[in-house]
Amino acid sequence: MSNAAHRLLWTVLALLLVGAGGTAWAVGAGRLPGAGVPLVGAGPVRWWRAGAPWSGLAVAVGGLLLALLGQRLLAAARRVPDRLGGTLAHRGDGAGRTRVASGVLTGALERDLLRAPGVRRARVVLTGPVTGPDVWVEVRLAPSAGIGAARAHVDAAVRRFAATVGCRPAHLDVTALVDETSG
């Protein structure tokens, strides 16, 4: 799950908490009707007794669904989006468009970037149209690597890549991680 997904999840949960808690408080304070009613009314209790043993089975199925939701959430939360796969799109003459997985192209650019001295790791994601893709680059630099030299090399590598592929990058976004130690 990405940071944005976590943030969205907790924003929705917070809204639900505020809504549920606020409504319960308003009922308890007499601002909404039902202050004298028990938390669980006679209806659910009657349903539980009249429906036995099926009501118990229904609760068990609900519990299993809840556990399944928890398991899926656990699996999603433990999966960190390490590798994003970009997709390039090419519009045809008529209706529809061709989508191209960009793995081969990004691999070539990453290998070129790793040739620069001081670049320890490089990740590239390409998105958008084939003729004018957005290029997202992340490089990890050794402490000895100069930022200026790295910038020049990355810019040159992107230019070479654009000339080879025959595209013109619409947007270049580079994030450099500067290592603290030389190990």
Binding site: A52, V59, A60, V61, L66, G70, Q71, L74
Partner: peptide, 21 residues
């Protein structure tokens, strides 16, 4: 939250099954 949902769901399923029996 995921662990709580998983644990709570399993507990609820066991409680429902025992109640049905």
């Amino acid at each position: 939250l995921a662990v709580a949902l998983l644990g709570g769901g399993v507990l609820m399923a066991v409680a429902g099954l025992l109640a049905a029996l």
